[in-house]
Design a binder for these strands. Structure first.
Lengths: 199, 199, 199, 199
DNA sequence: GTGTAATCGAGACGGTACGTCCCGTCTTAGG
DNA sequence: CCTAAGACGGGACGTACCGTCTCGATTACAC
């Protein structure tokens, strides 16, 4: 309803901290009563509003190559974060989720899970094409790709552009194409020299 | 001083949100006045307390192999996060930093930067040994390694253990050992053809 | 409401300076928020409470003689001041009004003005009866009567009892019965010669 | 010392409430330590400073007529109050004295008493000249004269100028010249009609 | 067509933490 | 030994927002 629009507007204009339930009510032309009748708190409102705004960005278009699919999807995601300042919102939600287990659960199940399922489907297709080694752990792979994005989003220590995304996808996928533990030099035991290409 | 101890204790016992400046003052046997005389707010106190507790964990012991060094350092970092619940603290600080630019700057400069410098030094040593391709972007490499850790720390969608860390390091470093964009696929042997523009 | 009762009780029990808005809230079973919602500060609360307690004491019963009316009213006023320690309250309000123009205005308009209007009505009746010279200044007359009361109330340098009040009323009214500056001494029969400029 | 000057300056510039011990120390170029070594608090400092400034205004010049002497002294006093804003100071001191018994005592003994003694001496001279009836109560007489001044000073409900003062002195002294209880109609008992001139 | 119930707006309420201010004490160097 | 400088514990201040609540007014449906 209009309440969600008001919430998302206010989070985008000012920060999370400046948004009060009263302000949402005023902007939406409604009252606190109505809001509290339907949501348990500010976090839930913004969560719903954010998900409503993000719904279209879930799909990953098959493109014949995992690299291309992933890079396109990551660029889309980043664009979603930076345009319309959804990044500020997700960032605030993650922040709030640290002290709000129900929000944390909602974030995982309603935001992360669908996107990870899409990525898993892409991995499946890639494995069918032989692009991906069967032993690779989907979770680690996904986090190796998306973790850096969220990392930079939340710390802001370095920018993200298409080149960075492609460099990231290249690096990670190149590592994921070879078997994850190719030689016999184990995880951390042998201090022997590793040939550059053999790692 | 005792204020920092009190702050870190309280954040560990209860959450960030439950910690009051008054409570810190009471625990430290001091008064709100004194706290506000020295710090501008709760965030700054906890930031200082957190950094004081984290100081020893910066070093990275040279081990002859970048893989080993990184894996050891990442395991140390994760142990620091999970033991003594420093993870709750850093997580809360990142959360707070979303609405507090000064805290964000402090986080980047006082928490991230020293650790990234250590990692950069390790890369340098690795390059001297020929373990790492010279063209690799240090920033992307570091984020590809540490981003997933923070990602899982803040979303909690999947656990982190030694195996995960080693799998991650293996994958990323294997990708970083080959030249990042050399036309063909070079050392890493992907059996599929990649279209030139997508590579 | 109960807040005013609590305020007046606390001012009577302890002094003005010892009364806290928090204490008033606690005593009244309400919260600081509610108090500040309705009054701008401690002074306004106590002012309202004081006026509510003082409301019945405004009337002046016609008695056929200005002297009697005034003396009775002044005794009533003093009794109001000393019983129920309203004297402490008005004294504190006057004190506070020195640094609080709005309170000063309120005191003049809501405490003094009604009582001065009553006195002026009494003067009018007295003039109709020929008890009072028409040229006498009402303001000066009223202050000559009540000023000493407030003076002793606030400095506490001498007690006030019925005899003092009657002596005061006698003296002032005797002076107010003669024309205020008529060369000779007229109706009041002073046996001494007054120099012309002083008469 | 310079502390007293600073105190009196600050009370005159801003109000009592805005004057802090720290501000006095800063203005006087000294430190809180020194101030607290010599005075028990803000009130005592300002009291001393006020008395030092007021010392010259005690005398009452004999003028052959009590009326003239009193009127001159009262005009001097009022001028002292209004010029150099000593009125704000005495007013604040009286205010503070309501919650500070030691200050109240000091005010009575060091401010009021000397002036009342001077007035008493003037009454004595007047009685020697036959200007004043011997039975008149000095205290009531003094308060009838000065009470209205303080009344208007503290409530500010009406201005004071030379005409007001002379009208006041005229009225009161005219009443004080006749014997204070001339007829037999008692204080307030008989509701009988009082002849206008007989009261 | 009207009575009944649900829903709404408006906003007062108790509560809690905030960050500021000033007090009066105490500690530390320096002259 | 007394000073200037200033940190300290303490405690009230007035503000902000929270989430609950009580009100009428407005609707919408059932009778």
């Amino acid at each position: 309803v209009a309440i969600l629009d008001a919430a998302v507007q206010l989070v985008e204009e000012h920060g999370w901290g400046e948004v009060t339930v009263e302000a949402i009510a005023a902007r939406a032309g409604t009252s606190k009563t109505t809001i509290y009748r339907w949501w348990p708190g500010k976090a839930a409102i913004v969560m719903d509003a954010f998900l409503a705004a993000a719904e279209p960005s879930t799909e990953m278009a098959p493109a014949g190559s995992l690299r291309i699919e992933l890079a396109a999807q990551m660029k889309d995601l980043w664009r979603f974060f930076t345009e319309s300042s959804a990044g500020r919102t997700i960032t605030a939600l993650v922040a709030e989720a640290q002290a709000n287990p129900e929000l944390a659960t909602a974030l995982r199940e309603r935001w992360l899970a669908p996107r990870r399922a899409v990525a898993a489907a892409a991995y499946e297709r890639a494995r069918d094409r032989g692009e991906l080694h069967p032993d690779v752990d989907d979770g680690v792979l996904t986090d190796a790709l998306y973790g850096p994005l969220y990392f930079r989003l939340m710390f802001g220590h370095a920018p993200v552009d298409d080149a960075v995304i492609e460099s990231l996808v290249d690096t990670v996928l190149r590592g994921a194409t070879s078997p994850p533990r190719l030689g016999g030099e184990g995880a951390a035991r042998p201090p022997v020299d590793e040939p550059p290409g053999g790692g």
